[in-house]
Write a protein that binds this DNA or RNA. Sequence first.
DNA 1: CTTTAAATGTTATATACTAACGATTGAATA
DNA 2: TATTCAATCGTTAGTATATAACATTTAAAG
Lengths: 164, 164
Amino acid sequence: MIQAPENSVFDASGHDHGACIHDALTRAETLCAQQGLRLTAIRRRVLELIWENHRPTKAYDLLNSINAERGNAAPPTVYRALDFLLDAGLIHKIESLNAFIGCDAAHGDGHPKFLICRACERVAEIPSPAVDTALAREAKRAGFTIDHETIEIGGTCAACAQRG
Amino acid sequence: MIQAPENSVFDASGHDHGACIHDALTRAETLCAQQGLRLTAIRRRVLELIWENHRPTKAYDLLNSINAERGNAAPPTVYRALDFLLDAGLIHKIESLNAFIGCDAAHGDGHPKFLICRACERVAEIPSPAVDTALAREAKRAGFTIDHETIEIGGTCAACAQRG
DNA sequence: CTTTAAATGTTATATACTAACGATTGAATA
DNA sequence: TATTCAATCGTTAGTATATAACATTTAAAG
């Protein structure tokens, strides 16, 4: 189990990880039901593995886990599940790590933004309307239409900075 | 030659590409001389190829170009040159494309930020103190120390939007 | 049921990157 | 200028990430 640090967005103290995973899956089921998407066994399991890990998770780690359980997965099995989950907005890809993390909807309506601690490998999905506004202004100035934002801030979280 | 669109940061009208490449290499030479870095033939040629392309350029495309010229390059040849150029701040890696682009210093002192047109594949490196400020504020709120920012905004540039 | 589109299995391959070690080069200095 | 030593480069091999293509299975809809 992850040791609990003490700051806000990275805070894991009082984090009931079992409930966290359960909630994420419930949200996924609700969303898929609403949108007429099929959360199949593989897709559900991949999502669950990502939430269990609660860190950016690599495709081949997922592949190994799936294979340990069912013994018959090839890369496309996992990549197709990941593509589905990405399209459904249930996970995000962290481009700078080639890894995937559950969407906790902390970005609200805005674009997702991540603080990534290199020491503990944990990721916080943060809202920041101010960043969105500033980027929207820059885009407008350039006559640029935004589709997607990749905002990944690498560094050190408070807990890791404190422990040296 | 790239057809010239008409907006600001993506503007290529009146762009003398030969001079642009030449300037970039001159800047690189100056910087390396100042810092006691060795801009060797391979490193220089890789940088030049990236600027000639003037788009995010893949490592293996560079490898193929080098091989067409000299016939004896393996992946490490290119990756080592890219590592050098990255460390020297002469190029940036676009994480969302696994590709590399010349640093045009448009970010000034701040972290580099990119507008990436999916239609024409061109990239504009934009300054935005407002974005930097907003992110710094969010990081501070979280007690997070920033090392590196990956900010890549995908979308459509004005010229591509106009031509449909 | 039957049909059919979606999902999955399977094989193969493309793309991205790195480790390790020997050979060469070139800058510093004896 | 000869020597030395660290930086650079060549080379082989391997690991990591991702996709193409097509066969088979599943399950939703008629």
